[in-house]
Amino acid sequence: MIDVEHLVKRFSGFAAVDGISFHVPRGQIVGFLGPNGAGKTTTMRILTGFFPPTSGSVRIDGLDAVRDSLAVRRRIGYLPESVPLYTDMRVVEYLDFRARLKGVRSRKQRRDRVGHVLDRCGLAPMRRRLIGQLSKGYRQRVGIADALVHDPPVLILDEPTVGLDPSQIREIRDLVRDLGQTHTVMLSTHILQEVEMVCDRVMILFAGKIARDGAMEEYRVNGALELEDAFLRIVHGASSASSPASASETGTGASTSARGGTA
């Protein structure tokens, strides 16, 4: 479903993504891990057609993400990291607008789809509210509802649970797991537990490269999941040889994951 080959993205000389390749089959949930600045968001932005790669290729459902950008975007539901939304619109109005943009043409179809995602994301009681008045948790749900509204086969979720309280995290997690039955999902997160609970496969990105990529079982040592160890080994193994700046960055990553663990 997602084919990425030798993907490179340079920003004024600096390689944010440095030659990564992977393949995600239909119906898999892939967790994208890595410290801040590892290239997760950049990779996701290329997949969603926000900007093209410097070199390398991305194919979604057999379509090239650069040449058939519009067709690819129709097949993807994307939740950007900070969930930017038009705060002056009402929830139902916004979703209808997005559905229309994403090619859900007929009025009836749109009403069905919008109604469906409102229910699915627990937004029905908030449908008439202005988005600007919603809490963080509800905004996150509007973002997810937006990603789902045109029923795309591929979902790309950039930190879908960041900033949510524990019960909201659980709800979103359950939702993602549920969606994984019918969709190909790629999600990035700092919360290792989340990956353990939701994903079939884990990719750890570090400094623009894939440091490790494997099915969840491969991270099991003697029956216990050693995801955190694997993560820290990669991050610290590299940072002990590099600058203190990157060491502090990995510190943030580790502490976030610890917080996630208690959540």
């Binding site: 932005r45 969603t48 057609g49 926000f50 519009l70 067709a71 975007r73 129709r74 993807i76 994307y78 950007p80 900070s82 930017p84 939304l85 038009y86 997005r98 943009l101 994403k102 090619g103 937006d146």
Partner: peptide, 10 residues
């Protein structure tokens, strides 16, 4: 940041 939402729509 809504620019990203807008430009990743078809």
């Amino acid at each position: 940041g809504t620019f990203e939402m807008l430009m990743t729509a078809p």
